[in-house]
Amino acid sequence: MSMPYWRAAGMTYVGYANACAVLVRKCMKEPFKSQTATRERVHFKLSQWLDGVPQQPIVRTSDDGGGGGGGGVGKK
């Protein structure tokens, strides 16, 4: 079965769509660019639980740079 290159790299469709959206937003001109910048701001904390014990929480945030909302998607 042929696979799209992004799925072969372990991305999901939403991750791919997010990365594309970030690129499109980067191409916009000024009044729109700053308007849409708020749509990339992300902040949340997640932790996996194993047998009732929470593991080390991971914070995903766009405040520390990382190239906007799409930046955090691929890493782990």
Binding site: V14, R39, R41, V42, F44, R60, G72
Partner: peptide, 9 residues
């Protein structure tokens, strides 16, 4: 925002 929710998804 949608970006955040899709990252969570």
């Amino acid at each position: 925002c949608f970006t955040q929710c899709s990252m969570m998804a």
